[in-house]
Structure formats: C-alpha cells, structure tokens
Amino acid sequence: MNKIIKIAKLIYEYTKYGEEGDVVGKTRAIDDVSLEIEKGDFVAILGHNGSGKSTLAKHLNAIFLPTEGTVWLGEMDTKDTDHIWDIRQRAGMVFQNPDNQIIANVVEEDVAFGPENLGVPSMEIWERVEKSLKAVGMTAYRRQSPNKLSGGQKQRVAIAGVVAMKPDCIIMDEPTAMLDPHGRAEVIETVEELNRTEGITVVLITHYMEEVIHANRVIVMDDGKLVMDGTPREIFSQVEKLKSYRLDVPQMTELAYELKKEGLPLRDGILTVQELVDELCQYV
C-alpha cells in the first residue's frame, strides 16, 4: 500500500483571547482525526463552515502543527523542522483568494517563484515553468500581468506555481469559493486533468457538491470530527445524514431523492443528469 498522507489521532486546539489579552477558553478545531490517503487519489473533504476542514488541510504541509497526534507526509513527520521545506515542496497548496497568493507581477515569474525558492538552476526553472503553464493551459498568458486575468485564470496560475515545484500532492483549500461558475469549472477541470495525467494526489477542500462528484473518495467533517468517508456514491446515498451535517447534495441527487420520497423506486446515489435519465427511462 502506498500511503502518501498518514494522520494519527490529530488534535488541534487554539486559544481564545478576550479583550485584554486574557485567556477566555480553548477551542478544539480538530478532534481526534485519523486518516490515510493513498498516492494518486482524488480526495474531497466536505464540511460546513467551521467544521475544521481548512485547519486539517493546513496541517498537511506544516503550516499548522498538531497540538496532539502526528501527521506524516510520506516518511516525514510534519513536526520535524529539518524537513519543513521538503514537506512544503512535496505538498503544494492552493488557497482561496486568487489575488492574495500571486507574488510576482508577471505570470511566468510567479510560476517560477516556488522553484526559485527551492534553488533550482535557471535553465531548469524555464523548463518547469513552460511545462506547468502548459499543464494548466495558460501558456498564452505567460508574459501578462496577473492583474489582468480572470479569477479562474488566476487560480490556474496559482496551480501552475505549485505544479512547478514538482509536488506529489496538491492541497486545495476552497480554491473555487471566490469564483463564478465558469471559473469554478475551469479550475476543477484543470485539477482533474493533473490528477489523471500526472498522477498527482489531490486533496480538495470545498463546499460545492458538484465538484465532489469526480473525486474517488469523499470525506465529510463536522465539528472537528471525521464523520463520513467513502466514494461519492456511497456518501450521496445518505441524503438525510448529509443534511444533518448542514450539507447539500448535488442537484440530481436531490431530485432523485425527492422523487423517491414521492414513491418512485429509484436507486440511491444518483450523481449526474445522465444517470438520472438512464434510471428514469427504465420506468417509461
């Protein structure tokens, strides 16, 4: 078995301070989570606001360190400060706000930022930038200013910036939350493509259900705990349970669920329009 990420009994607490800097209390953002992610997987983590999904993501590349428990990336413990740059090179991260993660004034220089920090020789940086921009389909914009790009394009540049570091794993922390539907589709397609062709492990944090359908594993978090884990079909068969965690289901799943409640004998876990059409046609 080839596990890229191993999380054992992870607990993360942060301290709340009052107006005068006095300690008011402690909040447990992550409560005893254990999890293993296989190499090459496309894992989606779902959860309502404040469920701890972003906090969990930031543990994977040592931005946050566990209060208790351990996170391993490959063989490296994220608490081991000697390996911190190796860990961040192997687990790249894309953030929510496209504007606040682009550093340089020219697209290609921003993509080069990661490799420059790693001390990659200039010639190789050029090759990596070339390849990464091609992988996300942004080669035509390489000499432009990032300020002139759309949100979806900026996120693709950010993804290219991570890809140029040659990571084993990309962690996406709600990369589509600030984008319009078109930009969202653009970003998700890019990530799926990278997962499929380059074999990069993807951990996608999101609260858009439509983006989860193509993952091969879905994890649901609520109140700092891991509450559901399975394939999209398994997860979305349990519509009521999802609703109890204040989560929606994909539109088609919802429709199928409502039809079933009205008495149509449909199977559980319908995800796409095509599946629902096929299912319905059997009864015509």
Partner: peptide, 14 residues
Amino acid sequence: EARCYHGGDGRTKM
C-alpha cells in the same frame, strides 16, 4: 511560506 519562501539565501532566479 507554502511555496517554500525562506528569504534570499539559496534562492535562484528564473
């Protein structure tokens, strides 16, 4: 920091 920025030491240039 997530993209390994740690100051100017050991940094190369594109």
